[in-house]
Design a binder for these strands. Structure first.
Lengths: 203, 203
DNA sequence: AATTTAGGTTAGTGGCTATTAACCGTGGTG
DNA sequence: CACCACGGTTAATAGCCACTAACCTAAATT
């Protein structure tokens, strides 16, 4: 008979393991953002997390699994976050403003992962790619639903394009913030992006 | 004594060579956009241009040279085009509108190259990367100069960020137009992007 | 305290791929 | 019409890299 691992015990080892896994994902976000998925070796990944080479296989089944964990994670965070934002807002206009703020926060605080998401999505295995695309689609629909409440007459196709364009606007700084250095006037940038996004979305 | 190849004769072969080179660059734009520079092999590249493998070396010194030709080409086209646009306009407001139209045209007609440019810039060799970055910087400055004429009091840092964000907005569709399929309502998309860009830039 | 399990390590190993070698037909040139 | 430069071909070559094997130590479990 097998021992069912129904409940994971919080032993010292499991904590260490979790934090190592997190370190690997952090390293992956940074390295993939800089050099692209195919430009990073498992050895690079391991040593950036303070461990060398094949130890990565104690945490992930392979290189694709690392990318998959990274991208499904960010997609879920975006979707869940946006649902929470919309649920907390009363009127659609406030909801849209909060969605913008949320996306700006996300883009500025997780620039690396944002970058990887639209750079290396195609490197995922078919199944994972579909999952991530589905999560992204649902996130997009949260925006489109909110936009539709504000412009009931607009076609959804148009609203979808609008949302895409706003994402491009907001996500632009990760592309330009080279290497992940700190941004001087972060608050100013945040405000500028919010204002521009608001102006663009209200046309 | 060497024969100086001062003037290239327009022989049948040289024409064939030029068109093969163009085919290779087209293939590179498409494949790099889809799979990323490191996800495409020389063999892939060649066969997509109707030639197999090492024949590529008759046209480029190596794989990096292909990427370099692609990216310096697009950067130069953008810079030259923007200079022409500004030179043709009289007042700054018209210039800005034309710059937007120009960038939208470019993003919609050369989506692949746009994608490669901000995806695989870091795969260039140091020297070429500096060249491309320099061209991009000069292109950005064309925008910033125009913006500065319209808002003489604004800091250039802020205007630079603004321009970046507008690029992100306009270049968003290449990211979303998966696989390079034709866009249904191209004119509508063009108009939408222009309107949104104009609204965003005028905050 | 004995034993098992898990996360690490350092050596392979095999496949892919950029680049080079060696060779070949032909358009352009004299 | 003889020659040759050139764009192509297929067959090495060499290096990188994902992944596996074999082994080792120490935390958990008993």
């Amino acid at each position: 008979m097998e021992v069912l691992p129904v409940e994971d015990r919080l032993t010292g080892r499991s904590i260490a393991k979790a934090s190592r896994r997190a370190a690997l994902l952090d390293a992956a976000a940074q390295l993939f953002a800089e050099r692209g998925y195919n430009g990073v070796s498992i050895e690079d990944l391991g040593s950036a997390a303070g461990v060398s080479g094949p130890a990565v296989y104690r945490h992930f089944s392979g290189k694709p699994a690392v990318l998959s964990a990274l991208l499904t994670g960010v997609s879920e965070d975006l979707l869940d976050g946006s649902l929470a934002v919309v649920a907390a807002s009363t009127d659609p206009e406030a909801a849209l403003k909060d969605l913008i703020r949320f996306q700006v926060d996300f883009a500025l605080s997780k620039a690396n992962v944002i970058r990887v998401q639209d750079r290396d999505l195609s490197s995922l295995q078919r199944e994972d790619e579909q999952l991530v695309r589905s999560l992204q689609r649902r996130y997009l629909e949260v925006w489109v639903d909110t936009l539709a409440e504000l412009s009931p007459d607009a076609e959804r196709v148009r609203l979808r394009r609008k949302a895409h364009a706003v994402f491009g606007l907001i996500n632009s700084t990760p592309h330009t913030t080279h290497g992940g250095r700190a941004v001087p006037d972060l608050a100013g940038l945040r405000g500028l992006l919010e204002d521009m996004a608001w102006a663009a979305v209200r046309i």
